[in-house]
């Protein structure tokens, strides 16, 4: 059964091209990318700065329009959708984790996580209880009513992950999710994000410039100057080192920082 489902890709990119016009110069950020990603996969898009990896992610998340080519995600053609439809599509299918967390500074962790559910029109009782469960799952049971400024970077990113997953999306996009974190915290967050997606059979697509990350992914897509130069499947991805459990929160540092 899993095999049959796995054969149908959740994301199909065909000849995806993005051309930026800067003055009279034409810059090909993406140049005819073909790519298929399957449900439940952890795909890692690796490339140097300017390789087009962020552009690719933005287009898959419906934040940018392609100049050419097609994007099919969860059975929908993204390039044909209006902005309003894309917003709706994201709300129902996609979660997004940012490098700089992008939490709402005035709101508590709980409110931050409940926010996408509020956008969806879920009532206060339901969304609070779902956000609470989600925060518990990312190991922040004790930090529900903390504001972002009262939390460490690792904790903030956990809130970000909880917020991205609370709507139970099919796909989670993560743009350098560990980019603003120190080495150890990076590994914890990476493990959390991978395990939790695996548990929920959520497709995880992560963009990074860090070659180390590639060894932990199921699929590695390497980009250079807008071309896919490598697309390999990792049959046996490496374990993420570090002896701690994902759900165990050892990043509590707020007392020290304040």
């Amino acid at each position: 059964m899993e095999e049959a489902a796995a054969r149908e890709p959740v994301i199909t990119l065909k000849n995806l091209t993005k051309i930026y016009t800067i003055g009279s110069e034409k810059l090909r950020a993406l140049d005819g990318v073909d790519l298929e990603i399957y449900p439940g996969e952890f795909a890692c898009i690796i490339g140097r700065s300017g390789s087009g990896k962020s552009t690719l992610l933005n287009m898959m998340a419906g934040l940018e329009k392609p100049s050419k080519g097609s994007i099919r995600i969860a059975g929908k053609q993204l390039e044909r959708m209006s902005e309003a439809q894309l917003v709706q599509f994201r709300l129902n299918n996609v979660g997004f984790v940012f490098q700089s967390f992008n939490l709402f500074a005035m709101h508590t962790a709980l409110d931050n996580v409940a926010m996408p559910l509020m956008y969806k029109g879920v009532g206060k009782m339901t969304r609070t209880s779902r956000a609470r469960k989600m925060l518990t799952a990312v190991g922040l049971k004790t930090h529900m009513n903390h504001k972002p400024t009262q939390m460490s970077g690792g904790q903030q990113q956990r809130v970000g992950i909880a917020r991205a997953l609370v709507t139970q999306p099919k796909i989670l996009f993560a743009d350098e999710p560990t980019g603003n974190l120190d080495f150890n915290t990076s590994r914890e967050i990476l493990r959390l994000i991978r395990d939790i997606c695996h548990e929920r059979n959520t497709t995880l697509i992560m963009v990074t410039h860090d070659p180390e990350m590639a060894q932990y992914a199921d699929r590695v897509v390497r980009l250079l100057d807008g071309h896919v130069i490598e697309n390999t499947v990792n049959e046996h991805p490496a374990e993420i080192p570090g002896g701690v459990q994902a759900a165990q929160d050892d990043t509590v540092r707020d007392e020290d920082e304040e």
Partner: peptide, 16 residues
């Protein structure tokens, strides 16, 4: 600006 952008990425309707 940034906050509004995040709202849109998270799926907040334009009309909202």
């Amino acid at each position: 600006t940034r906050e509004i952008g995040v709202m849109k990425v998270l799926g907040c309707r334009l009309s909202n």
